[in-house]
Amino acid sequence: MSEGYLTTHVLDTARGCPAAGISIALYRISGNSHTKIAEMVTNNDGRTDSPILPKGKMSAGEYELIFVCGPYLDAHKMTGGAVKFLDTIPIRFGVDDEAAHYHVPLLLSPYGYSTYRGS
């Protein structure tokens, strides 16, 4: 059994604070198939209350995190009109070491975002 796990968090780089209340879904990708394996919401620290993929559940392969950011951006009056530049942000990534800790954060602003493999 693997001991690897997956964590994430969202930082609002425009406001300089954690982004609370963002819905996040995790999918396992296999060819054209997407299987939802977890769904959580960020807390006041911009993190999920537990790993989005806990120890013992990680396996090598392709995954996708879907961050639903539109409602958060609306709530903080960071959208310019009826059509948002950013609303739902997908981040697809691969896991090749199922014993490792993968941390995939989202750095969010109304008109851009970035991510990286953290620790």
Rank of each mutant, 00 (worst) to 15 (best):
Y63H: 05
N43Q: 02
T35W: 04
M40K: 11
V95G: 01
L106N: 09
D97M: 00
M58L: 15
L107Y: 13
P71A: 06
L11I: 11
L53T: 05
A38M: 07
I52G: 06
T42A: 02
R92V: 08
D87I: 10
P51H: 03
I37M: 07
P71M: 02
G21Y: 08
G56Y: 04
Y116E: 14
K84H: 15
G70F: 01
K55F: 03
M78N: 02
S50G: 01
G46T: 09
M40H: 00
H9V: 09
L107E: 11
S119H: 08
E39T: 06
N32R: 13
S109G: 15
M78L: 15
F67I: 06
A19D: 10
H76Q: 11
A60C: 05
K36G: 02
G4N: 08
H34D: 11
I24K: 00
G80C: 13
Y5C: 05
A82Q: 13
K84D: 10
L108N: 04
F93Q: 00
I22W: 01
K84A: 14
P110C: 10
T48I: 01
M40P: 00
V95D: 01
L106I: 04
I52C: 00
D45L: 15
Y102A: 07
D97R: 08
T42M: 00
G4H: 04
F93W: 10
G46A: 07
I29P: 02
S114M: 11
K77A: 14
P90F: 06
K55L: 05
F85Q: 14
R28D: 06
I66Q: 13
D96N: 04
I89K: 04
D12A: 09
P51F: 06
T88M: 08
E64G: 03
P18Y: 08
S119M: 08
I91T: 05
I37L: 09
I37Y: 04
T48E: 02
S23F: 01
S59E: 15
H34E: 15
T79L: 09
H9L: 14
S59T: 13
Y5A: 03
A20H: 09
T115Y: 02
S59F: 10
G16Q: 07
K57T: 02
C69G: 01
L86K: 07
S119N: 12
K77T: 11
P51Q: 05
D96T: 11
R15D: 02
I91S: 03
Y113V: 02
